[in-house]
Write a protein that binds this DNA or RNA. Structure first.
Lengths: 210, 210
DNA sequence: CCTACCGATCGGTAGG
DNA sequence: CCTACCGATCGGTAGG
């Protein structure tokens, strides 16, 4: 055994993780555990072994941290879902895939997801508006998917498009309250169980397969 | 037209509404809009046309208000759901009824429900433990309902009991984020749409009716 | 990244 | 229910 091979990095980009990233990650954890307003900058600094005022060498305000956490989470949902829009899959398969990706984003980012769902109302007007726009986009994504299935004849023509999308979104979003990473269920397991139950209620009576 | 008939009371018990009740209700609204920690006692007092310190003639602490709001909400869920446990209905009908009642509690108490779901982590240990116990009770209620349906032969024997209960709870709880009282959908409408989709995925293939 | 500090605001109380 | 106040803590800054 020689030193010619550098040790494999334990995480993808360990060196690229700046102090700023650490601050954001710890903030995400504290905001998710205690809430944004109940987390003080001194709490945050203490977790990082520094004094409260020292944080401002790396960030410009507390709200910047919240904005970054929320926007990053929104970006991950977008990257996972919106790339599916142009996918030529049939609607039922696409829906199953979307649910799996959606749950995976929640499961892989439980803290950010919690902050995202609980604290976005505390954003300043500009960032707040971006989140409501994002929410409309995701709503439309799932509604379009349901409509696609109806047009393709896979989904019942009498489906209430909006309510179906609401039910799907309920299932995948609410996972932030109960999912435990490292437990017996992978995001794929959850998505498969959910999709099986939901698709049975959405498909035209003629169809039956998985 | 004479004055012999007293005017019908606009609300059930208008005279029984004490100043304390007003404080709790306004607190529920502010806590739901801004969050518990972001609502100051002076904000609350201002909405009621009084000074901050005057609140303490009626309440003993800010947390008392939170505890009362959360416990009242939990009590309404209990009153709506747990009375169904001994009901002799078949499981699918009972599930539909439970979902309708559950959504109705959310819909009729959007503010308290929001506080309940977002702020219970900020309770002191004793009240916090009561909420986690409550949550376990409601989880068990829905899981028992799914099990009952499997035993009765109405629901598929291969249903994942825990995941089915999770899906049901996702649907009824998430309503607090999107339901708008006074809109086109009554809680009954929502429950019917949801139950139709969910029950189709839970029933044994033999069955088909509503 | 620290020390020392700013004005503002917090939940709550005393005394009336 | 008000006035006046308490100590504690808040987010953020200056200067090093």
């Amino acid at each position: 055994m020689t030193d010619s091979t550098p040790p494999a990095s334990p995480t993808p980009e360990p060196a690229a993780r700046t102090r700023r990233d650490q601050i954001r990650d710890v903030a995400g954890r504290l905001f998710s555990e205690r809430g944004y307003h109940a987390t003080s900058m001194r709490d945050l600094a203490g977790e990082l072994g520094m004094q409260g005022g020292s944080l401002y060498a790396h960030i410009s305000s507390k709200e910047d941290l919240l904005v970054e956490i929320v926007q990053t989470a929104a970006g991950q949902f977008d990257a996972a879902l919106l790339t599916l829009r142009a996918d030529p899959l049939p609607a039922d398969q696409k829906l199953r895939e979307a649910m799996e990706r959606h749950i995976r984003v929640v499961a892989d980012n439980m803290e950010s997801a919690t902050v995202f769902f609980h604290e976005w109302k505390h954003l300043s007007p500009a960032a707040y508006a971006r989140v409501t726009d994002w929410r409309d986009t995701i709503d439309a994504f799932y509604r379009d998917l349901v409509r696609q299935g109806i047009e393709e004849g896979t989904f019942r023509p009498d489906l209430d498009v909006k309510m179906s999308a609401n039910l799907i979104l309920s299932a995948v979003n609410w996972a932030y309250t109960w999912y435990r990473p490292g437990g017996r269920l992978t995001p794929r397991d959850v998505a498969e169980r959910y999709a099986q139950m939901l698709l049975a209620g959405m498909r035209t009576p003629a169809q039956e397969a998985s």
